[in-house]
Computed example of a mutant assay.
Amino acid sequence: MKLLQLIRFKNLLLIALVQVLIKYAMFPAFGVNTTLTAFQFALLVISTLTIAAGGYIINDIYDVEADSINKPNKLIIGKHIPEDKAYTYYMAFTVIGVILGFYLSNLINRNTFFAIFVIIAALLYIYATFLQQIVLVGNIIISVLVGLSLVIVGIFELLPAINTQNQFIQSSMFEVVFDYAVFAFIISLAREIVKDIQDVDGDYKMQFKTLPIVLGKNRARYIAFGLTVFLILLLIYYLANYLYMRQVAVAYFIIAVIGPLVYISIKLFSAETKAQYKSISNLLKLVMLSGMLSMIVYLFILK
């Protein structure tokens, strides 16, 4: 059970859900050609999840001291799982993920795609050991990787299936996947900043150069607020230009995504306590989920 907590199994389930929605909800709704069989897609999902699990573990290994201050009740490494055993878990998950990525890339005759898995694993390690201590860089890297967990499905499913007859629809579909990845990136970046504000005490003691430590909690809060407002405006623009004729989609986004984001932006503008920032962080994760569940809507509006 502690291992499941260590690898953030709920976050992993969210990643898997989003990838499944892309393949089995979005792609069929648009009628695009895909590459992976069910077995090959399972390899992609498992590879992504195991590499992500390894990233969570190595991050916790290097965050033990800070976490002992920020969230002592949730500390696992050193308290429930020895550090050397955690390293073993990290290596096992990462190696399994990279090997599966290599195998999958060869199965579909796209050997160069293997580099994606190596780069993701390397970035997660570099983030944990170095980048998270650099102001905003660590936040951006993690948010990019969140977006990449969506884009990788488009890379493996759409690109190998492109031919002269379907190039337009395949490229257009990849753009839609990329739009969702941008949504995931922005909301993840806002959440990372909120989490840094929440963890400012432990990070300060560890001499991390996070945004709230360098600029102050209020300025960091305003940046997170600005990102949230920017995402709201971006979604309104997207609805007005691409989905305005689809009333079901418009209603879904307004009720399940834009509305909650407006509420979050209001709460961000007045947040002060650690409990308030924790609540905002959880709300941002829920909006991330509701945004991704919108892929199901396409099955109904494109019939």
Rank of each mutant, 00 (worst) to 15 (best):
P212A: 00
A128V: 02
Y237I: 12
A128P: 05
F114R: 08
I140P: 01
A128Q: 06
L17K: 09
D84Y: 12
V95S: 07
L14H: 10
G101M: 03
Y238Q: 12
I296L: 15
G154T: 04
A161L: 04
I126N: 09
T164N: 15
K195V: 01
V137I: 11
L286H: 11
L43I: 02
F113I: 00
Q165T: 11
K217Q: 13
F117N: 02
D201A: 13
A161V: 05
L159T: 09
I142Q: 00
D203R: 05
I236A: 14
Y237V: 10
F39G: 06
I77M: 03
V137Q: 01
A251Q: 14
I141N: 03
K303R: 14
I187M: 02
V182M: 09
Q198A: 04
L283K: 15
Y244E: 14
F230S: 01
G97L: 01
L289C: 08
V194S: 00
L49S: 04
V257R: 04
G31H: 03
F30M: 12
R8F: 03
G31P: 00
Y242G: 10
L100W: 07
M245L: 14
Y238L: 12
L283T: 10
S270E: 15
Y90E: 05
F113L: 01
A251T: 11
T35R: 10
I213C: 01
A128T: 03
E65L: 08
I264L: 06
G78C: 06
L107H: 13
V135M: 15
M206C: 11
L21Q: 08
Y56W: 06
L145A: 02
V64W: 07
I296D: 08
I22D: 05
Y24I: 01
Y56E: 00
K2A: 04
Y56I: 00
M288V: 03
F9R: 07
I142S: 01
S105G: 09
K267H: 12
N70I: 01
E272Q: 13
P160A: 10
I193S: 00
L36G: 01
S149V: 03
M245T: 15
V20A: 07
Q198I: 08
T164I: 14
I152V: 01
A122Q: 09
L289E: 10
V176F: 10
F300G: 13
A16E: 04
L227K: 02
M206E: 15
N139L: 02
K217A: 11
Y222C: 05
K10Y: 12
V137L: 09
G138I: 05
V248Y: 13
I58P: 01
K71G: 01
F113R: 01
I46T: 11
I162K: 07
K195G: 02
A275L: 12
A29P: 06
R110I: 10
V250G: 05
I301R: 06
I119P: 05
D201T: 13
A122I: 12
I140W: 14
I46N: 05
D179F: 15
I61M: 02
I120R: 04
L243Q: 14
I15T: 08
L36C: 03
F117M: 02
L239R: 04
L243Y: 13
Q167V: 15
Q40D: 09
Q207C: 11
S279D: 14
L231T: 07
V18F: 13
